[in-house]
């Protein structure tokens, strides 16, 4: 029964990864790529300062986005799970949070233009309030815009798993805490947050991997001014430099897998479904 799914994954996941690893040792000329076995691509990659800067930038995006999505996602899920009292409303509001996930990311990125542009809503509002005199240039096509878009796109990856674990918390535990004299903040800190950790971990895995593997958000929202590893790869691809793109891809994949490996030590995904 599991054979078809296995076949698809072997052909479209395992083989491609193997192919990337193989090609990362190949050589490239301007027009073609040649099978070979040398470490030139890796030497170039690790010998270049750009690589380290770009990897650092990628981690920066991942960390900042993670902090924001976790904060917002937790608060939203907490409201839904513990403050909305009827199940119908919980379902309706939860669906409202998840619907954007099923619409196009690219269009959701584009839709920030009228907000953040030089003559956009944010700038004209701030000017009319007298907060600023001249339009701010760093709203669109900047790191700020990149992070904003990441948070916009990926917060629901936090909301869903956190809400899921919160809904499975036995309400009598909270009552017990209250009977024992705990304040609201104490309940939150000593009961709810520890019990919600698996959900936060799953959300973290999603957000971190999505941000680290992204190239399109960074390209679009930074106006090609910032770079992360994904963009490094996609630039190489655009130049048909597949071997060097593959070498970068291998390093990126290893980095992501190491991060996930660490995170998975804290949570058993199958138990949490």
């Amino acid at each position: 029964m599991a054979l078809p799914i296995m076949a698809v994954l072997v052909f479209f996941l395992v083989l491609p990864i193997a192919m990337i690893v193989v090609v990362s040792f190949w050589q490239a000329t301007e027009f073609s790529i040649i099978p070979a076995f040398d470490f030139e691509n890796y030497q170039f990659l690790f010998g270049s300062n750009v690589t380290y800067r770009v990897f650092l930038n990628t981690f920066k995006y991942a960390l900042i986005t993670w902090a924001f999505t976790l904060g917002i996602g937790f608060t939203v899920a907490y409201f839904l799970a513990f403050h909305v009292r009827s199940l119908t409303w919980q379902v309706v509001l939860f669906l409202l949070c998840t619907i954007p996930f099923w619409t196009s990311n690219i269009i959701r990125m584009i839709s920030w233009i009228p907000f953040l542009g030089r003559n956009g809503i944010a700038n004209s509002t701030l000017i009319s309030w007298g907060v600023i005199d001249a339009p701010l240039d760093w709203l669109l096509f900047s790191d700020f815009a990149v992070i904003l878009a990441f948070v916009h796109l990926y917060t629901l990856f936090m909301v869903v798993p956190i809400f899921n674990t919160m809904m499975r918390i036995d309400k009598s535990l909270i009552e017990a805490a209250r009977d024992a004299g705990a304040t609201g903040a104490q309940i939150l800190w000593n009961v709810i947050i520890p019990l919600t950790k698996p959900g936060m971990m799953i959300g973290t895995i999603f957000v971190v991997t999505l941000v680290m593997g992204d190239f399109i958000t960074v390209r679009f929202m930074s106006g090609s001014q910032s770079a992360n590893v994904g963009r490094l790869i996609s630039n190489d691809i655009a130049l048909l430099a597949y071997p060097s793109a593959s070498a970068t891809a291998v390093v990126l994949l290893l980095t992501v897998l190491i991060v996930i490996g660490i995170l998975l030590r804290f949570v058993d995904i199958r138990k949490e479904l």
């Binding site: 990864i17 991997t209 190239f215």
Partner: peptide
């Protein structure tokens, strides 16, 4: 968790 662009490339 694999970055999408790797699937594309591979």
């Amino acid at each position: 968790v694999i970055p999408s662009i790797l699937i594309s490339l591979g």
